[in-house]
Amino acid sequence: MTTAMPLQRPAISDREETAKRLLASSARKSYDPMIEVDWEAPVPDDKYGLTPEWSTLYGTALWEEMTLEQKVELTKHEAASVSSVGLWFEILLMQMLLRDVYGRDKHSRHVQFALTEVADECRHSVMFARAGERFGMPSYGPHPVIHKLGRIWGGFFKGANAYASVMAAEEILDMMQRDFMKDERVQPVTRTVSKIHVLEEARHIRFAREEVGRRLQGASWTRLQIERLNTAVVVYFVMKSMIRKDVYANAGLEPERAIAEAKANPHYKDKVRTSGTKLMQFLDSAGLVGGPSKRLYKRVNLL
């Protein structure tokens, strides 16, 4: 990966100015998914659950053998899996934000935007849950072990690592959903859900990016190593959780073959690597890529 320019760390005094701008943006452009999404609209039989090029089987021999009906069914399950992981992480994010502002001045714009973000994430969580329900999909979520580890993360992670992890997870969803929302081959529900999430998450990503810079000011070498590894571990587990292996059996495919072809799929690996370039450049510029963390990023195809 090309070495990024060092991160220009925002001054602590800029925190309130950033929060003021983000609050103004929230006031101008926020969405209620219960109104914006037509939850009663028919689910077309010939529309994919997500952009087919984002399917883990796209480009494989198995994909070429599948009928349109099978491809549509698989991508609905994959979309439900992605949404369920988004929902899981939104809940962790809300916990982190509320813990972070608990002892801060509630009159500050910084705290008020954090609370505004929590309100956004509440709506997003319901939206993701409703989308899976509308497609009649299982409630996937991360693997039970990862779900339990999330409880630990939710209770102890804080500071730069928490904001970097949140920003990274949101960027991962964002890089997929920017394609979903523009693709007319995709289910209308998926497109609208993706559009709402992308537009509102742009503020959240900005908020988190700047906090990472502030929280890492003056970080010691030892602390930076810890922050690197912790962030990479969270990104690793989020990426590994995106598509649960049982989506293949649930979509009517032979699971062993589907899992093997998805695991070896060069197209999907390239798609993740290319789409994740902006995220990895930011993490690198922040000093959060190096040592053991590189191996974890490579294992989930981000490097």
Rank of each mutant, 00 (worst) to 15 (best):
T3K: 15
T3C: 02
T3V: 12
M5L: 12
P6D: 08
Q8E: 15
Q8S: 09
S13H: 02
E17H: 04
T18G: 05
A19G: 08
L22M: 01
A24S: 13
A24E: 15
S25K: 08
R28P: 03
R28F: 06
K29W: 13
Y31T: 15
D32E: 15
D32L: 13
E36I: 06
E36T: 13
V37F: 12
V37D: 11
V37R: 08
D38T: 04
E40A: 11
A41R: 13
P42G: 08
D45I: 04
G49S: 10
T51V: 11
T56W: 14
L57V: 08
G59D: 02
L62R: 12
V72P: 14
V72W: 14
E73H: 04
K76Y: 14
H77V: 07
E78S: 11
A80V: 14
F89V: 08
E90Y: 04
I91Y: 03
I91C: 09
L92M: 11
L93F: 15
Q95A: 10
Q95F: 11
M96N: 08
L97C: 01
R99M: 11
R99G: 05
R99L: 12
V101K: 07
K106E: 15
F113A: 00
L115S: 11
L115D: 04
E117T: 06
A119L: 11
A119W: 01
A119H: 09
R123V: 06
R123S: 15
M127N: 03
F128T: 09
F128R: 01
A129S: 12
A131R: 06
A131H: 08
A131F: 15
G132V: 07
E133F: 09
F135A: 06
M137F: 03
H143W: 13
P144T: 11
V145C: 03
I146G: 09
I146L: 14
G155L: 12
G159H: 06
A160R: 05
A160W: 09
A160T: 01
A164H: 07
A168H: 06
E170V: 06
E171N: 08
L173R: 00
M175S: 12
R178E: 09
R185I: 02
R191M: 11
T192D: 07
I196W: 07
H197Q: 13
H197E: 10
L199T: 14
E201D: 14
E201V: 06
R203V: 10
H204K: 01
I205W: 12
I205Y: 08
F207S: 07
R209D: 07
E211T: 02
G213Y: 09
L216C: 05
Q217C: 06
S220F: 05
W221N: 09
T222E: 12
L224D: 10
L229W: 12
N230D: 01
M239I: 02
M242D: 01
I243T: 15
D246A: 05
D246P: 02
V247N: 02
Y248I: 01
N250P: 00
A251F: 00
R257Y: 07
P266G: 06
H267T: 00
K269Y: 07
D270Y: 04
K271T: 12
K271G: 01
V272K: 02
V272F: 04
R273C: 07
R273P: 05
T274C: 03
G276N: 06
Q281T: 09
L283S: 00
D284E: 14
A286P: 04
G290S: 14
G290M: 10
G291S: 04
S293L: 04
S293I: 00
S293C: 01
V300P: 10
N301E: 14
